[in-house]
Design a protein around this nucleic acid. Sequence first.
DNA 1: ATCTTTTTGACCCCGAGTGTCATTAATGTG
DNA 2: CACATTAATGACACTCGGGGTCAAAAAGAT
Lengths: 203, 203
Amino acid sequence: MPTTPAHAKPRSSLRGRPAVTSHAEIEQAAFRLFVTKGFEATTLDDIGEAIGVGRRTITRYYPSKNDIPWGQFDRTLDGFREILRAMPEGLPLHEAVHRGVLAFNDFPADASPSHRDRMRLILTTPALQAHSVLRYASWREVIAEYVAERTGTRPDDLLPQTVGQVALALALTSYQAWLADEDASLPHLLDATMAHLRSYVSA
Amino acid sequence: MPTTPAHAKPRSSLRGRPAVTSHAEIEQAAFRLFVTKGFEATTLDDIGEAIGVGRRTITRYYPSKNDIPWGQFDRTLDGFREILRAMPEGLPLHEAVHRGVLAFNDFPADASPSHRDRMRLILTTPALQAHSVLRYASWREVIAEYVAERTGTRPDDLLPQTVGQVALALALTSYQAWLADEDASLPHLLDATMAHLRSYVSA
DNA sequence: ATCTTTTTGACCCCGAGTGTCATTAATGTG
DNA sequence: CACATTAATGACACTCGGGGTCAAAAAGAT
């Protein structure tokens, strides 16, 4: 998985003034400040000062302060789509989606802000909790499209939308528990919430 | 259900300068502007001007512009709690929760911004979609507490949290479909999403 | 050396949110 | 009635995020 964020255009030519910073540099400097000073207390000027760049430059790299912690998320959605497409046809739908979610959340352990730290920041900061809904929407859409394809419906029909929303619900619950328990395993928690759901609706 | 928002303190005495406006007046004036000019394009000054009041007064009545469309939502949570508490013990858990959600969403048809208009604004405006997660959290907590009580667990255990998240997922899916289809019935859609979920996980 | 391309930084303005404080408008008391 | 008390408002100032504009900077291309 490339570390280059989606915003980075392939740079049509090598002409022109070279970029003095990068998405990665901003993200890492920002992240350090977020965890030490707190997200709200960190201003864009702080981040700019930390890497010797103006505030206006930061806002050109990221559409908003809220988008910085998510980093290269958009990129990973293409991977998610492929994961789902590669699922065996014979698998029951809920099993396929569940395995897809598991695979999607199998992150490399060497990420620069660790996956856990990033998710902790996102899931415990109110402003980021709120903003993330907009990110989740495209994640849900990937699932809805897959379900629609497998069931011969349209992505905005009731079943695909329901499955997308529910899958997100389970993932969020699992992440929450994962952050609360220092030595919990995310895959295990994803299995557990799914198991709870199944027993819940069929009790 | 009283129309007085949660912010309104009972006014300890009748002394002092009388309030020149009210939460209700602000909400209705704001709502009219939101639907005509759009949420983003409506400034707090616009709202203040519409009811002859300063911008600072608006921000004292509502903690943020995003909170205005929700109106008296917090109040209704107490009602939700009672609805759930009144459910027959014998009912299967998922049935009890489902009926609770149905009852909670049985709104009087004469509300001032109609329930549908309010939900359309909230669910189609990105800033409000994002902000609303924070409201949903307390709604989910009501469900989690009920589930915890019935299953002898704690509200932050995995099952109650899962049920809370999933119930919200179903409700949001239903609302989305309700807004998309002019003559759809919300209760019917809530039933339908629940049915889809059941067949999905047990297929 | 000059032209072209691209990024940066320096301004600009706007709107939300928040703190402070004098002013206003009511009630209660002598 | 005059005066103290209480509570809400309005005016002002400030910070921060977001975004538009444009000249300057720094590279490659000719």
